[in-house]
């Protein structure tokens, strides 16, 4: 394949991002549907019953992918916020703004499914464990970033202020991740480690991995869907947006 020089700044305008996102959405959406279907099939029908937790452990197939996405999306949001602040690029701020609700949704789902797993496993819906508490704080951080953006009328100031808040808050992500090691609390340790052999059966691990990939693809699809709406809402007086009316 011939190497071509890519002009990255070509994509750094809302006008370029809008059709690019439109082309990528179906691809992400279909593959996410394929992965989630395969993951549900493997997780609910093929994977064996856990010898300790019985079938309650199957919650892991939505809980862990949701929890991973909640942290991953925050880092990506903060990354776009940093690029936006550094390059004063509007599409970067728009991407950060588009990620926040999906990140908040997955944070809520991680907490909700965690409660439904905690009840049969620990006997409590909620405990003030380090992992649970730091994840709850993450939900408030997403809410804070969204509320701050919504509360400032001047969009450029809203972008910058919420970007700074998102960046400062990124310190909580390693705290969530390492909380099960730093504090000896109720939440179990990591199911997957880079250095140790997996603690799970191969089919369980595969189902969780495929579900995580499916959630990742889903997040990409809905983020791009949202950024397209944000572009139309924010740029509706631009001449190229007015052209969208006829297309």
């Amino acid at each position: 394949m011939k190497m071509e020089r890519i002009n990255w700044f070509q994509w750094s305008s809302p006008q370029a991002l809008y059709p690019l996102a439109g082309k990528l959405i179906p691809w992400f959406a279909w593959w996410s549907a394929v992965c989630i279907t395969a993951g549900l099939y493997m997780g609910l029908l093929v994977a064996p019953t856990d010898f300790q937790q019985g079938d309650s452990y199957r919650i892991i197939f939505v809980h862990v992918p949701a929890a991973w996405m909640s942290m991953f999306l925050y880092v990506v949001m903060a990354g776009w916020a940093a690029v936006g602040l550094g390059l004063k690029a509007r599409p970067s701020f728009m991407m950060a703004q588009a990620i926040a609700p999906t990140g908040a949704l997955f944070t809520f789902l991680a907490l909700f499914t965690g409660a439904f797993w905690g009840k049969p496993t620990w006997g409590a819906w909620w405990v003030w464990d380090a992992r649970l508490t730091s994840e709850l704080i993450l939900l408030f951080q997403y809410a804070g970033v969204m509320l701050l953006h919504a509360s400032i009328d001047d969009l450029r100031r809203a972008d910058r202020a919420s970007a700074v808040l998102a960046l400062v808050g990124v310190v909580n992500v390693p705290i969530i991740y390492f909380s099960v090691r730093w504090w000896n609390t109720l939440h179990q340790g990591a199911s997957i480690s880079m250095t140790a052999a997996p603690k799970m059966a191969a089919t369980m691990l595969a189902a969780m991995g495929i579900m995580a990939l499916g959630f990742w693809l889903y997040s990409a699809a809905v983020t791009l869907m949202r950024v397209r709406s944000i572009i139309l809402e924010r740029e509706r007086h631009a001449s190229w947006v007015q052209m969208e009316r006829v297309s």
């Binding site: 549900l40 609910l44 019953t49 019985g54 079938d55 309650s56 199957r58 919650i59 939505v62 809980h63 949701a66 789902l109 909700f112 499914t113 439904f116 797993w117 009840k119 049969p120």
Partner: peptide
């Protein structure tokens, strides 16, 4: 029935 854990498993998957 999910081995008796249906009331925990299905709300998790359903709400998601």
């Amino acid at each position: 029935a999910m081995g008796g854990y249906g009331i925990y498993v299905w709300p998790s998957f359903g709400v998601t």
